[in-house]
Design a binder for these strands. Structure first.
Length: 864
RNA sequence: GGGAGAUUAGCUCAGUCUGGCAGAGCGCUACCUCGACAAGGUAGAUGUCACAAGUUCAAAUCUUGUAUCUCCCA
């Protein structure tokens, strides 16, 4: 690498190959275990920025654990994603001029499997390109054999424990999918619509009823008012006539009716509205269906001929027209409707009464709530547990049957009499129930909700229902890294299933990450055209740069407003490290790998101390899952402390033969240890650079220790840095070239190393003159604490500029002086504050006073 | 309607749990090709910490309220 430029693509491919060929992602046996299962991406898709973020976070944690001697397992895999995959393949088929109906169930499923093979491989390749260190030999798919066994086993078990039942209920129905969906798959959206105020006849009078869904009046079975509504009290118990169908329905009283809403009267349609369904049950109202499952109006018994077969929204228009003809429309108001939209199909959902399978959740939710209450499972950040509790306390039974083809077929069989038999297979069912082969059995046509199999993921991927070693070893898993958007869909259900089936939590910590947004904070979406393809970024700037830019931005729970700029900056960081490596080679390759017992030079002690401090801080943050903060701290250490300051200081030690060997050791050692710290985030570049120093692989290495040093006094080097900055500032202010040498004076002796570094780094010479400050009138002073240097300004100084500068500084210092003084004068402060703080305040006061005195002196001489 | 979060430099955000002089990156300005690095270096400017009240010796940080925005649930 010594003569090459940093070209990420070249080195990344190479090391990915090496790691994979040598099985480096397989866990190495250890007594410390760390396991994590991937949130399985939908097998249909290709990876987006959200995946890149999630995987980068997981990988940095896994690699960190690996370096720290853990037996670290990351299980990869994909999800069959029932509805969305089926829709995609259907779309593909229709572009080929065929359809799932034409193919039939079995052939269609074959088509989906073919699709899955290419798409699934695509996903793992993309992950490999980004350097994700999964154990690929453990890769799983939610529909593979083992996982299907797990699904059936759990279904049968829950059924036998009466935790799964089949029932006729009102569910959210997707009229285009022709399937039920769960409550969670419903997105409520606001839409500008109308509120129709319709007249229903009551005897010779009429009542006005406000509704957003006039077409459902065909299925009305009551009119409801609030019992406390004085306007309508006298009507309770009377009959109203439904227009168009001329059905007589009772006027009932129910607290549910909002007196303020519309006219205060509402129509009750128990077969087509969730609230009305409840009221219908409460008041024993008739369920009158007026809609087919595809959303068309039907019911030949009572529906006018011209409406039959029309889509519900077409029918609405005609119904309104006819009511207007009959003068039964009082008025039409503008109104913001809440429209339920299918999460996947995006079509308007209808509440429908159908027969479906449900999981009884109340009981299994209890343990899942307790596990989080007792901190057996921890959310990071903690506040997400409130979201979790809120949902879990109000959990509803989970509708798990879907009327689609792609998925786990429900393991239930029916005989001719409609008896239900649940078992692992038809054979199992026959033998359990003593059913002879003469009795015909038909398997349930429905498949399970995708999330049913996902809920078993943490243990099904480890081999359950087989009693595998992996399951014993890695379950419960250590950590789950996921987005807040699937806490209900997935996290809650994994906790419930994990506890119920395994009697143990599925994971200990849940690290929640945010959403990747665009740089303006908007969601990335295809319709906005602001999506970024992570693979494209990695081609342009390197996988390491992409990973680092995501990791550095991702605070737990916080959204990540992303800009390609961040990745560009991360690549520059990589380039900086690359060049730093060349520097280390250049200055240390000719020295022996000599390790001094005791480091003596101040500069070296300083960098070792800084390294220790930073490593300590890094570990504290990292172990708290503040990965982004940890790497920000480390980034600043590398660029500022190590590269900008220490590299310059070390040059002077090495080229001047001052403690050359210890400096070579320190320079090389701090750099190499830094590579290790950087490795989990930027695995490829660090491995490449490491290989130019060492024959072993960095991935096989161990996390660095802190240095054992006898002193940790960094004050003098900090003072040196401070004085150097002041002098550089002076030079810039007066337009002096960097290369121009200046002459400084000091009245006391400073150590040789200090003067040497000062002279080289600021291009100055220091003259010792014990009474320079009393003798010389016109001196510019550079001072930090008791380090004090004077400069005879000569011809290049503009006294007015200097005075302005000094006055400004004086004002700043006086302010801090006042604060310090008033604090120390304050009796209560002295009584209440911590002793260290008071000590520090006193020291501060002394320093500031010293500096103010100096500036005043200088100002006096400049004025004089 | 219920719940959660946000409001800090031009931009994107740390810092708030655990009170102690307001931070980072990017951007901006000026200068610099000096043997690791111009994908770089040096130096610099920039703030009513949303608003109001309270607690405290001390508040961006704790308490209460207000405003605006975002998300989740109904």
């Amino acid at each position: 690498m010594r003569d090459e430029q940093y070209e990420p693509l070249k080195i990344e491919k190479k090391w990915q190959q090496v790691w994979e060929d040598q099985n480096k992602f397989k866990p190495k046996p250890s007594d410390k275990q760390f396991s994590i299962v991937i949130p399985p991406p939908n097998v249909t898709g290709s990876l987006h920025m959200g995946h890149a973020l999630e995987h980068s976070i997981i990988d940095v944690l896994v690699r960190y654990k690996r370096l720290n001697g853990f037996e670290a397992l990351w299980v990869p895999g994909t999800d069959h994603a029932g509805i969305i995959t089926q829709l995609l393949v259907e779309k593909e088929l229709s572009s080929q001029g065929t359809s799932k109906e034409l193919l039939g169930r079995d052939k269609f499923i074959d088509e989906v499997w073919k699709w899955k093979e290419t798409s699934g491989e695509n996903i793992s390749n993309q992950m490999k390109t980004l350097g994700m260190s999964c154990d690929w030999s453990m890769e799983r798919f939610t529909m593979d054999e083992g996982l299907s066994d797990a699904v059936q086993q759990v279904f049968v078990d829950l059924y036998e424990k009466d935790l799964i039942y089949k029932g006729t209920r009102m569910v959210n129905w997707d009229t285009t999918l022709m399937s039920a969906v769960s409550d969670l798959e419903v997105n409520m959206t606001s839409k500008q619509g109308k509120l129709w105020n319709l007249r229903y006849k009551v005897g010779d009078e009429h009542l006005v009823i406000a509704t957003t869904r006039p077409e459902t009046l065909l299925g009305d079975s009551a009119i409801a008012v609030n019992p406390n509504d004085e306007r309508y009290k006298k009507l309770i118990g009377k009959k109203a006539i439904i227009p168009l169908v001329n059905r007589e329905v009772p006027i009932i009283a129910d607290e549910y009716v909002d007196i303020e809403f519309g006219s205060g009267c509402v129509k009750i349609t128990p077969a087509h509205d969730f609230n009305d369904y409840e009221i219908g049950i409460k008041h024993s109202l008739e369920l009158i269906s007026c809609m087919n499952l595809d959303g068309s109006i039907s019911n030949d018994e009572f529906i006018p001929k011209n409406l039959r077969g029309l889509d519900r929204f077409e029918a609405r228009k005609i119904i309104i027209q006819e009511l207007q003809k009959l003068d039964q429309v009082e008025k039409i108001d503008d109104y913001t409707n809440q429209i339920p939209i299918g999460d996947r199909s995006k079509s308007i959902l209808e509440p429908m009464i159908t027969e479906q399978w449900f999981v009884k959740t109340k009981d299994i939710a209890k343990d899942a709530i307790k596990a989080v209450e007792t901190d057996e499972i921890k959310f990071i950040p903690k506040n997400w547990e409130k979201t979790y509790f809120e949902w879990m306390y109000n959990i509803q039974d989970w509708c798990i049957s879907r009327q689609i083809w792609w998925g786990h077929r429900i393991p239930a069989w029916y005989d001719d009499n409609g008896n239900i038999y649940v078992g692992l297979s038809e054979e199992d069912v026959r033998s359990k129930n003593n059913l002879s082969n003469e009795i015909a059995l038909i398997q349930d046509e429905d498949v399970l909700d995708t999330w049913f199999s996902s809920a078993l993921w943490p243990f099904s991927t480890l081999g359950w229902p087989e009693d595998t070693d992996k399951l014993k070893q890695y379950y419960p898993t250590s950590l789950l890294v996921t987005g807040f958007d699937i806490i209900f869909f997935w996290v809650a259900r994994m906790i419930m299933m994990g506890l119920h089936v395994q009697k143990e939590v599925p994971f200990q910590d849940i690290l929640i990450h945010g959403l990747v947004r665009d740089s303006k904070g908007r969601k990335m979406s295809k319709s906005l055209g602001n999506t970024i393809d992570p693979l494209e970024l990695s081609v342009n700037h390197g996988a390491d740069a992409l990973r680092f830019s995501l990791i550095e931005k991702a605070s737990p729970g916080q959204d990540v407003p992303f800009d390609e700029e961040w990745t560009v900056a991360a690549k520059k960081f990589g380039n900086k490290i690359w060049n730093a490596a060349k520097f280390v080679h250049l200055y240390t390759d000719d020295s022996d790998d000599l390790k001094n017992d005791e480091i003596i030079s101040k500069e070296n002690i300083w960098i070792l101390t800084r390294f220790n401090q930073v490593l300590n801080e890094f570990e504290l943050l990292f172990n708290d899952y503040k990965v982004s903060d940890a790497y920000k701290v480390f980034y600043n250490f590398l660029w500022s402390d190590l590269f900008d300051w220490y590299f310059e200081l070390s040059k002077n030690l090495i080229t001047n033969n001052i403690n050359k060997e210890e400096t070579s050791y320190v320079l090389r050692s701090v750099f190499l240890k830094s590579l290790k710290i950087l490795n989990p985030a930027m695995p490829h570049i660090t491995e490449e650079i490491w290989s130019s120093f060492d024959e072993t692989l960095l991935i096989d290495n161990v996390w660095p220790d802190k240095y054992k040093i006898n002193q940790n006094d960094t004050q003098e080097v900090e003072a040196l840095k401070n004085i150097i900055s002041q002098i550089r500032n002076f030079k810039v202010t007066y337009g002096l070239k960097n290369s121009q040498s200046i002459e400084l004076h000091s009245s006391t002796n400073f150590e040789d190393w200090f003067i040497m570094q000062l002279e080289v780094l600021t291009k100055c010479t220091v003259q010792k003159d014990s009474d320079i400050f009393s003798k010389e009138k016109n001196l510019v002073v550079f001072q930090h604490q008791n380090f004090k240097f004077g400069l005879v300004p000569g011809e290049y100084i503009d006294i007015e500029v200097e005075k302005k500068k000094l006055n400004k500084k004086l004002a700043e210092l006086s302010k801090t002086l006042d604060v310090s003084k008033s604090r120390l004068d304050n009796k209560k402060f002295v009584e209440n504050a911590k002793p260290e703080l008071i000590q520090q305040e006193k020291k501060n006061l002394a320093n500031v006073t010293l500096e103010i005195d100096t500036i005043n002196e200088t100002l006096n001489t400049l004025n004089g």
